[in-house]
Amino acid sequence: MMKIGALSESLEDYLEIIYQLIQETKEARIKDIADRKNVSMSSVIPALRRLSKENLVNYKTRGIVTLTSQGQNLAARLLGRHEFVKYFLMSLLDVPEEIAERDACLFEHYMSPETFRKMVMFFEFVDTCGMNIRSHFEDYIANLDKQGDGEICPAPECPFKNDSFRRRQRWGMVKTLSSLSPGESGRVARVQADTAIRQRLIDMGVLPNVVITVERMAPLGDPIEIKLRGYHLSLRKEEADAIILYPST
């Protein structure tokens, strides 16, 4: 797999633009690429040649560019990283969107994998820690700004709250229990089942931060057997679908 940062910043940008164009309009034409990047068509060609030499794009002279699977993979990771950084800045640090967008563009190319990983972990921590750091922080800022009274701030009704799971799934941060294979394990982020079955799962000890290992699947593929808190439990994939985990590495 090609590492982030192995290409130049501008080549990485090209890759992302091609990816986005394909996503949006099903195809990437050289003219559109030039428009989007705000350069002339003649300067797009050498960049494409270099990308094609790295085996990231298929570039034919007729003006349509496609991505190789390797290119697609790298572009998706770059974009996921971009999106994460932007979200991190906006939701955690309350940075306005324009600034967050601009900074994310810079971070995405220059940040080391180590820092990125720590940022993801910190984000997870803030999200799951019972001490509610995020709201304290927002509370703190709100008080700084307004010198208002000390009531708990309404921050948990954050506009991103509802779709944050989908986002995090895209970043590869969370998975459902049913998508793990035997031998894999993860830490519970939350349980999305309806009340009756959720209460039962709580009683069986399926709670945030508990480590669950998938032991095996039944011969017909369903139900699955899992291990948690030192005992074995079996449940249908239907139920396992409702259990969201941070996969262990």
């Binding site: 019972g130 709201s135 708990i152 948990p156 939350r190 709580i202 709670l207 945030p208 508990v210 808190r229």
Partner: peptide, 21 residues
């Protein structure tokens, strides 16, 4: 729910299991 981001039954379960472990 606002404070912890979880419904009370999860909190209560968590508290009990936390104590027990």
């Amino acid at each position: 729910e606002n404070l912890y981001g979880y419904p009370p039954e999860v909190l209560i379960g968590d508290r009990r299991y936390g104590y027990v472990s």
